[in-house]
C-alpha cells in the first residue's frame, strides 16, 4: 500500500488552525516524521505559535515550549542544558522559528547560541515575511516583493538576507536548506541533523505561504518546487561551515520568471525587474557552485 521509504508516523494532529495549503505545516509534518517522538520543540512568536494551538489545545504530539519572539536560540540553549543536567541526552531539542524570529528579532540570540555551538537543531521555516500578522516585510523578504510594509512602488528593493551563509560563517557542524517540495531530501536532512549531536545544526526550510504570497492554496508544493528548479532556493548542505554539497542541480534551470510570475506578490514586476532578479539568482548560483567546487569530493557532505 505504501512503497515509500520515508518514516510514516505523524506527530502533528489534524484540526490545527493553519491556513489552507500552509507550507509551514507541511514542513512541520515532515520534520517530525524525521525526528520522531524524542523531540522537544521551542517555538517563538511566528505562525506556528498559533498553529501549534492556543490554550488548552496543542496540535503537536511532542512537548512544545512557546517562548518570546527573540528568544528561540537562547531558550533552546537553556532547555538543552536542563535535559543534559537531567541526564537526557537522547531527546533532540529543536527550535522552530519563522523568518522574522530568525533573520530579524531572533538573529542575535541565535547567533550567540550557534557561536557557543549549542547542541540543538534550529529550524527556520521561511515564508519570507511576517505572515501571521498580515504580511509585513522581514529581512528574508526577497527583492521585488510587495508586502503591506513595502507597498506600491516601494516594493522591497533590497535582497533577501542569505541566512545559511550567515550561519555557515559561524562554522557550525551542519547547515542546510530544505524544501517541502522535496520530502525525501528534507527528511534525510532532518535525520542527519538529528544524528549530528553535540553541536548546532541549522536548517533553512522553504515554506510556501499561499495567503501572503497570493497564490492558490493548491499550488503550495508546486511553487516550492519551482523555487528549486529556478535556483531561487537552491538545495544544499554545508558541513563545518566550509564543505558545500549541492543536493539538486536544477539543470537546466527554469527562468526565475516562471517562479515569480505565478505569485501575486510579484505581479507588479516588469521585464527589467525580472532581468535584474535573474542576474541576482545567477550570481548567487555561481557563488554557490564555486563554494561547492572548493570542497574536495570525498570531503563533501
Amino acid at each position: 500500500m505504501i512503497h515509500s521509504p520515508l518514516p510514516q508516523t505523524d506527530y502533528m494532529a489534524s484540526g490545527h488552525v493553519g491556513c489552507p495549503g500552509c507550507g509551514a505545516t507541511v514542513a512541520m509534518k515532515f520534520a517530525l516524521r524525521a525526528l520522531g517522538e524524542k523531540t522537544m520543540l521551542v517555538i517563538p512568536a511566528c505562525c506556528w505559535a498559533i498553529i501549534a494551538g492556543s490554550h488548552p489545545q496543542t496540535s503537536l504530539k511532542v512537548p512544545v515550549l512557546h517562548t518570546a519572539f527573540a528568544t528561540a536560540g537562547a531558550a533552546a540553549s537553556g532547555l538543552r542544558a536542563a535535559l543534559d543536567m537531567r541526564g537526557d541526552t537522547e531527546t533532540t531539542v529543536v527550535a522552530w522559528a519563522g523568518d522574522g524570529g530568525t533573520f530579524d528579532i531572533g538573529f542575535q540570540a541565535l547567533s550567540g547560541a550557534v557561536e557557543r555551538n549549542e547542541d540543538f537543531i534550529y529550524v527556520c521555516y521561511d515564508n519570507e515575511a511576517y505572515m501571521n500578522t498580515g504580511v509585513q516585510r522581514s529581512s528574508s523578504t526577497p527583492f521585488g516583493t510587495r508586502t503591506t510594509t513595502t507597498p506600491g512602488t516601494n516594493w522591497k528593493h533590497t535582497r533577501k538576507k542569505n541566512i545559511v551563509e550567515a550561519f555557515a560563517a559561524h562554522r557550525i557542524p551542519y547547515a542546510a536548506t530544505a524544501s517541502i517540495a522535496y520530502p525525501e531530501d528534507m527528511i534525510r536532512k532532518f535525520q542527519r541533523a538529528r544524528e549530528l549531536k553535540g553541536g548546532s545544526r541549522f536548517l533553512h526550510v522553504y515554506a510556501t505561504c499561499p495567503t501572503g504570497w497570493r497564490v492558490p492554496s493548491d499550488q503550495c508544493i508546486k511553487i516550492a518546487r519551482l523555487a528549486v528548479k529556478t535556483r531561487a532556493f537552491p538545495l544544499y548542505e554545508v558541513t563545518d561551515g566550509v564543505r558545500y554539497t549541492l543536493n539538486h542541480d536544477a539543470e537546466p534551470p527554469l527562468p526565475v520568471r516562471d517562479y515569480l510570475s505565478v505569485q501575486g506578490r510579484f505581479k507588479h514586476l516588469t521585464d527589467d525587474d525580472y532581468g535584474e532578479i535573474q542576474a541576482m539568482v545567477d550570481e548567487d548560483w555561481e557563488l554557490l557552485k564555486r563554494k561547492v567546487a572548493l570542497a574536495p569530493e570525498e570531503a563533501r557532505a
Binding site: 528568544t71 537562547a74 540553549s77 532547555l79 536542563a82 540570540a109
Partner: peptide
C-alpha cells in the same frame, strides 16, 4: 534578554 530566555528554557526543562 537571552540570559533570562535561557533560564526560562532550562526551568521549563525541570531544573
Amino acid at each position: 534578554h537571552s540570559a533570562m530566555a535561557a533560564v526560562i528554557g532550562a526551568a521549563s526543562g525541570g531544573v
